[in-house]
Every structure is written in C-alpha cells, then in structure tokens.
Nucleic acid binder design. Structure first.
Lengths: 251, 251
DNA sequence: CGAGGCTATTGACGCAAGTCAAAAATCGCC
DNA sequence: GGCGATTTTTGACTTGCGTCAATAGCCTCG
C-alpha cells in the first residue's frame, strides 16, 4: 500500500524534528532546497543562529493572519500550509500551497503587515526567520542576499504562472497543472513524483484554481476515466504523465 | 478638451527627458515614489551613479524579451509598458502594466533570465538599473536593501490581488478593479484620478483580465449606461467613483 | 482625402462551468 | 464501532462569457 510510503515520509520528518526541536540547518535534509542553498558552511551557521524553531502547528492552526504585524518569514520543515486572503465580502482566496523547503510570508515585507493568512493543512513544523535579522545578515552575506532576492523573484514568477493559468485555461488544464506542480515539487524533495497524498481538500484546490468543488471532482473523475490518474480519496497516483502534460497545456 | 490635459502631461515628460537624456534622481519628479524613495541625499547620489539612461523606446519596441539574459531591472520614467508571457501554445498573457515611477523586470532575478517580455505601449523612457550594481549597493545601504525587498514584496502582493480578481470576479468587477487601480496610480503621480487616457488597447485589457475584447467592450458600454463612466475611445472619465467601487467589490 | 487596415462595438448563439440538490463516502469523536 | 458532521461525488438545470459574424469608427500613409 502506498499508505506505507506516506507514513514512512511522516516518520522521517518526525524523526528529524519531533525527536529534536532544535535541529540545525547544517544537518537538515532540506538544506539543499531551502534558504541555506548555495551558502558556505560558515554562512549556514550564521543563518542557523538567527532561526527560531517553535513547536509544531496542529492541523488548522494559523501561522499568521492577514494584517498581523510582519516580523518573520517562515520555512516549512514538514507538513503543508496554505496561504489565503479574505476578500472584502468575506470570501477566501487561496493564493498558494507551501511544502517542506519552501518559504512563505514574503508578501508581508512591503507593508510591515502580512498580506495573507497562513494555516496548516496538517501537522506542520516551520522555521521562523526574523526578517530584521535576515536583513542584517544579508547585508554582510552576498550569497544570502542574492538567494533571498531570487526566492522573492521566484515567488513573483510563480504567481505570474498562476495568473496565466487562471486567465486562460479550462478546468482540466488547471487541475492537471496543479497536479504536475505538486509532482515536481515532490521530486525536488526526492519523494515519489507519481504517487502522493493531497494534503488539501477539494474545496481548497477549487478555491486555488478558481473552480468550484463540483468541477474539481468532475475533472478527477474524467481523468480517471481516461486512465491518466488514479484517485482514491486523497491519494493520487499519476498513471500517465504524458497524458497529464498534454491536458495541462492543451488549448 | 481633456486631450489638452493629456498632451500637457506628455509635454512635461518630454520636457524632463527629451531635453536632457541624463537627468538625475535628485531632480526627478518621480523620486518620491520610485527607487530613491526614503533614501538620503548621499544615498540617492550613489544610486544615481549606477543608473543608466538610454534613449526612449518607441511604441511597440521591446525593453526585454522572455528568456533574455537578466542583467537589469528598470524604472519607468515616462510612458507605459506592458509585461507579458507567451504560453507554450503561443498565446500571450499580459501580466502587468507599468506606469512612471514603477519598477519592472524583477521576475528575472530568480533564474538570471527574464520570465516575461516587456514592450512599450507608447513612447516611453526608462532608467536601467544593473542588478549586480544594485546588489552591491544594497549590501552597504540598508535603506536601499529594505526598499528593494519591499518593492519585490509589493509585486508579490499585487500579483496575489490579481489572482483573486481572476479567480473570483465577474467581468464587470474585473474591469472596475483595473480602472480603479489605474486611477489610484495616477493619483500617486499627482495626475487626475478621474480623467485619463488608456494607453493599452482593449485587447490588452481583456488579455490582462482574462476576458475577451468583446466582453471588455460590453462592460464599458454597460458602465456608460449606468453613468458610472464616460468612454470616448481611449479617454476615460470616471463619473461616479462610488458606483465603480461598488461594482468592483460586488459579488 | 480617400483607401485599406486596424480597433472597437454590437448582436445572435452555444457551451463550459456554476448553482442547486441529493446521495454516498469518509472522518472524527465519544 | 457506530453516529453525526463534513467532504466528495454525481446529476439536472442555468447562466455568463466566449465564439462567430457583421458593422462601424479611427488611424495612417500615399
């Protein structure tokens, strides 16, 4: 059962953090894709020294809320978070999902207040990086400054991709694109690219992609009928990657 | 005629740049909203010294193209530019419009290659800011580093707003939101918030908002019938700001 | 100033996705 | 392990926007 694979991953995570609430960047298995990326050992230690590690977030718990005072950005250590904004009329808009090794909270820098809220989709651990320390350290660590500029730039580029997706694509294209994105991000973490568990609900997926739950559900059914996908609850198996890619950028 | 107002603005711009191809930040009327914002006089001079000013772009001319090597970000001095991406199947997606005082090109930092193309919608002048110099200067000028972080963060937050718009809103809401955005940005530059000339075509507007030209045109007609707007070709007059606001965040 | 080519507007029609509704599956909790 | 709440699926119907098509206005260049 693939459930075993999943639980193995959880174990790994827990092994790395539950057992030790103050791990270090230098022995974090995510160092290669997270903030320390491209820093030298000494620099990693300096970065490490400004990072704060709190206790894990429970499912549903908020990491920060819209218009909270902005003080830190966060790196996901385990679990998944979603970022969302609340529109004036009270509806939600999911603006992103964040997986281990990814940084969130950067949209708060502009106004010293978070522009979105972030909540855990499952038990999650994060590293808190106080922004004022990060700024100071960046000024003396060119690699870090550059990397952080790059991270922000990537966030911009990714948002633009989502804009394109929302602006142009059919329901099938949108869902396919999201699945491919999750698959690629799993691969980056050396996890299965074809077999994974969706930590977010269909509602969240629909919300993120600008679709209703019903439509998301229908798309999954359709893709299963095409034998491109196997969906079993939250477990997803990509059966035909090429078919999915074709759907994703089919006009 | 409002045409006079517009031409007066053009004159001002041309007066400031055509006459002198190497103006300085310190006497640029956009300094208050552009990169020099919040820098001290000495710092402004340092920034000034790394900025390159080329000759104006003609309408339709590219500032950079997708996948061009990334070397600089750009500040708009006069005119308007649009940024857009080309999807795999060759279609365009406009990702933003840039007005005087605004910075573009930051999406290229992540991969050392521009993630979008930028072209002038009318004759435009830009300041080129070589990124490597900006990085170096940032490291020694905390104000500048911070401000640039903030600019990137704002870009992220704005993209997220567009995502929400595309994901949730009706055609009328989208168009109203764009008009309000342009109006607000004009106000920031001390220009009329209620009376302006659209430098982009209906096609570009539709593309940006994820709508067809026909729909944009119909929305304009509808808003005119409601007496919220007066549209005469590219000239726009906002007759009823409140009505427009109501449309913009009406569900 | 008039011909040709864009750009914009308007109308008629179809379809993809939304809405409403109800059943089925799953989750969470005692 | 079973009951209620939540999530997901499926179906029938509606609708806003896209598509196609035709006309009108505007811009430019000889």
């Amino acid at each position: 059962m693939n459930r075993q694979i999943i639980e193995l991953e959880e174990d790994l995570k827990l092994g790395a953090c539950a057992a030790d609430y103050s791990p270090h960047c230098s022995n974090c298995r995510l160092a290669g894709i997270c903030l320390p990326f491209s820093l030298e050992a000494k620099e990693v230690d300096q970065l490490d020294s400004i990072i704060q590690r709190g206790k894990p977030l429970q499912k549903g718990q908020h990491l920060y809320r819209e218009s909270d005072r902005f003080e830190s950005v966060f790196a996901v250590r385990s679990g998944t978070l979603k970022a969302y904004r609340t529109t004036d009329d009270g509806r939600e808009q999911v603006t992103g999902f964040y997986f281990p090794g990814e940084i969130l909270g950067m949209d708060g820098i502009a106004n010293n207040a978070h522009a979105s809220s972030a909540r855990a989709l499952e038990t999650a651990a994060v590293c808190e990086i106080p922004f004022s320390s990060l700024e100071k350290l960046s000024a003396t660590t060119p690699h870090l400054q550059r990397h952080f500029f790059q991270l922000m730039s990537r966030e911009i580029a990714e948002d633009q991709q989502l804009i394109t997706l929302l602006s142009k694509s059919s329901a099938d294209e949108r869902v396919a694109a999201l699945l491919l994105s999750i698959s690629a991000r799993n691969a980056r973490r050396k996890l299965s690219a074809s077999h994974f568990r969706l930590s977010m609900s269909r509602v969240d997926i629909g919300n993120y992609l600008g679709l209703t739950v019903e439509t998301v559900s229908r798309v999954f059914s359709r893709m299963q009928k095409l034998e491109a996908l196997r969906v079993e609850n939250k477990e997803i198996e990509i059966l035909d990657l090429d078919a999915l890619r074709k759907i994703a950028d089919m006009h």
